[in-house]
Design a protein around this nucleic acid. Structure first.
Lengths: 261, 261
DNA sequence: GACTTAGTTTCAAATAGTGAAACCGAACGG
DNA sequence: CCGTTCGGTTTCACTATTTGAAACTAAGTC
C-alpha cells in the first residue's frame, strides 16, 4: 500500500534506504533522504549509519553526503557472473551479433521490470557496465513481453500489478486486456514482437529463454529500426534466435547442476 | 575476534550472509551455508528468507539453491555510475590507453583491498563487467601501494591490518616494515612501482588520485611486462599519468559538488 | 544574541530477532 | 515395507535490538 513500504524487518528497511540512495543519481544529504522517506529521523539516521559502517554506503565527510559504496560493486560482480545469464550467454550473443549485424539484448525479469544484463551494439563497441543494470518496462518491450508470456499465473499476476501501462507511442499496448491478448499470441507464436511500442521507429523480435521445466530464465532479442528493416525480415531471424536461446538455456542448466551426485 | 563476525545488528548479519553466498562461485544450498556460517540453523534460515524475499537472493525452487539476485545488479549499476570514479574517468582512461598503448587500471580501496573499477586492455576489447568488481591485494600492487601511501594514519593502520603479506614472487614486500618503508618512498616520489611484486614479469607505474584536501579517491596505473619495456621507460610516463590523475580528481570534485548554493 | 537549520544522541517502550528443539517429508537401506 | 537419516522448515518462550519522540549540539542566519 504505502508508496514504497514493502519492508519486512530491519533488513528490508535498510535495503529500502539503499534503493533510495541509488535512485538519486548523485550523493545525497541526510535531509534529502529524510524528506523522501517515511522513516523518522532517528531511525533513518541509524540505518544510514549501519549501512555506512558496513561499506554499502560511503559518507563523504566533507559534504555530509551519502553515496553507494564500493562493496556493492564487488557484490554485483559476483551477482552478475553467478546469477545472471550474461557470462554464459556471452559467446552466443557475440555469435548472434555477428550473424545478424543488429543490436542484441539479453534481459531478465526483476520485480516486474526488464533488467538488461548484456548487450551487443551494432554500431559502437560493447560498453557493458554502462548498459547492464539498466531497467525498462516489461509490457512494451520485446524481451519484456516474451518473458511475461511464459510466466506462471501467480507470477504473471504479480508482474502485471507492477506495470504502469503508460502509452509511450501510438502502438503501445496500454491496457492489461490488450497485453493479455498479445501474450496469448506470443505463447502460440513462440516469439514476441516489439512493433514500435516503446520507441517510435524501433522494432524487435524477442524470444524467451526457458529452462527444461519451462521456467522463465530470461529473454533474448534482436533490435533494429524501421528505417533499416521490416518486421517480416526480422521475423526470418526468429528460428536462429530461438536456437541460440535454447543453447543458452541448456548451458545455463548444465552449469547450475554440474554434479548430480 | 570472530573469524568473520564484524556484524552489527541484523543488517550486518544479513549482509554477511550475502557475502557468503557471493563467495561461492555457484548457487549454494542451505546446508553448505549452514556449515560455513556461525549462525544457528533457524537464524540463517530466516536471514536467507528475508534476503530472498527482498530480491537480493534468488532461491531456485528446483534445486533449493541460493544465488545472488538481480536486484544487486541493478543497485550495482547505480553504485558504479555514482560512487565510483569510473564514469568520470572513462574518457581519460581512453586517452591514456591511446597514448601509452599499455594496459590501464583504475582502482579504488575497499576494506584494505584493491577493487578494480575499470580497465583498458592493450590487446583485447574492453570487457568491462568481467573485469570491474575484481579485487586484489593492496600491499603488492602498484595501485594498492599508491593508495596506501597517501592514507591518513588510522585508515592506513586499518588497511594494514587486513593485508596478508603473502609472498607471491621473490620481489613481494612481504612484511609490514618493508611496506612502510616503501610507502615513505612513494610519498616522496609521488608515484608507486610494481616491480614484479604480484606476478612475475608484470611491472607497473601507479599514481594516486587525490582530492584537493588530500583524500585518497583511487589510483591509476599503466601496466606492462618486462618483456616489452623497463621500469625506467615506464617511469617516463609518470608525469602524464599524474596529469591525468589530477584531471580525474578535479572533475570528480566538481561533479560531486555541482551547486555551491 | 536570539533564531532557524541540519545532524546526532538519549532512553523507556515495543518490536523484532533468537535459537534449542520439535517437526516434516523425501530419500535410503536393510 | 518399515525404521533411520538427512535437509529443510516451523514453533515458541526468551531477549536483545530497534524504535522514535524529544532533547541536544553545532553551524549558520538575520
Amino acid at each position: 500500500m504505502g508508496a514504497e513500504g514493502n519492508a519486512d524487518g530491519t533488513v528490508g528497511k535498510a535495503l529500502d534506504v539503499l534503493d533510495m540512495v541509488a535512485s538519486h543519481g548523485r550523493p545525497v544529504r541526510f535531509s534529502d533522504l529524510l524528506a523522501q522517506s517515511a522513516y523518522p529521523k532517528a531511525t533513518l539516521y541509524r540505518l544510514l549509519q549501519t549501512l555506512t559502517h558496513q561499506g554499502m554506503l560511503i559518507l563523504d565527510p566533507d559534504t555530509g553526503t551519502y553515496a553507494l559504496g564500493v562493496r556493492l560493486v564487488r557484490l554485483a560482480h559476483a551477482a552478475w557472473s553467478q546469477s545472471s545469464l550474461a557470462p554464459i550467454a556471452r559467446p552466443y550473443l557475440d555469435e548472434l551479433a555477428r550473424e545478424t549485424g543488429e543490436t542484441i539484448h539479453l534481459a531478465q525479469l526483476d520485480l516486474g521490470q526488464v533488467l538488461y544484463v548484456d548487450k551487443r551494439n551494432a554500431a559502437r563497441p560493447v560498453e557493458m557496465f554502462a548498459q547492464a543494470g539498466k531497467v525498462g518496462p516489461a509490457y512494451c518491450t520485446g524481451v519484456g513481453k516474451a518473458m511475461l508470456a511464459f510466466l506462471p499465473p501467480e507470477a504473471l499476476e504479480a508482474a502485471l500489478a507492477r506495470q504502469s501501462f503508460y502509452r509511450f507511442t501510438p502502438h503501445t499496448l496500454a491496457s492489461r486486456e490488450a497485453l493479455l491478448e498479445e501474450l496469448e499470441a506470443i505463447r502460440k507464436r513462440g516469439h514476441a514482437w516489439d512493433r514500435e511500442e516503446h520507441e517510435a521507429g524501433i522494432i524487435c523480435c524477442a524470444v524467451p529463454i526457458l529452462s527444461r521445466q519451462g521456467r522463465v530464465m530470461g529473454a533474448l532479442s534482436v533490435t533494429s529500426t524501421t528505417a533499416r528493416t521490416t518486421l517480416d525480415a526480422l521475423g526470418a531471424q526468429a528460428p536462429t534466435i530461438k536456437d541460440i536461446a535454447a543453447k543458452i538455456a541448456a548451458e545455463a542448466e548444465s552449469w547450475r547442476f554440474p554434479e548430480q551426485v
